[in-house]
């Protein structure tokens, strides 16, 4: 499933870029993230718990940040699997200065499998949108420098 959109952050592209590479901040911003640990140059292990309406599930997975091109773009891959299924999001994030801040445009694919996929396409799309929105809201709340 294609996922595309954009978010406006109140920082310079450089600051925005650095925030999104900071494992401590990522751990705070990724919705439901319970632990994020560096396991390689551009790779982190991830434990998250997703709660959405009555649905809840724990996921083990990883986050990878690749194709670095500070402050213009990078690729983020988040994947996780748990008892209720697995998910993978793979997107290219492009940063451009806009209105004194930075617009982050993202474009990529979201996949879902296992029992979780039985909730329906509509729910998956809405959930992905909401998780992305929450991620950027958390980041926006960081200090400007």
């Amino acid at each position: 499933m294609k996922i595309a959109g954009s978010a406006q952050l109140p920082f310079s592209p450089e600051r925005t870029y650095d925030l999104m590479q900071d494992p401590v901040l990522l751990a705070k911003a990724i919705p439901g993230c319970e632990a994020l640990q560096k396991t390689g140059d551009d790779e982190y292990s991830l434990k998250m718990k997703m709660v959405l309406a009555s649905l809840s599930g724990a996921f083990d997975g990883k986050v990878r940040l690749t194709e670095p091109d500070r402050p213009n773009s990078f690729r983020m891959v988040v994947e996780g699997s748990g008892k209720i299924g697995f998910m993978k999001g793979d997107g290219l994030l492009r940063l451009t200065p806009k209105d004194g801040g930075t617009e982050v445009a993202y474009e990529g694919d979201a996949q879902i499998g296992g029992t979780m996929a039985a909730v329906g396409n509509r729910m998956i799309d809405m959930t992905a949108r909401m998780l992305i929105k929450r991620f950027f809201e958390k980041l926006s709340a960081e200090p400007a420098a």
Partner: peptide, 21 residues
Amino acid sequence: AKPLSGGMSLIPMMKLRLAAP
């Protein structure tokens, strides 16, 4: 405890084991 009303959304989620109150 989790409130249950008509169960039209919660019960299907429980049957799929996506919800386990």
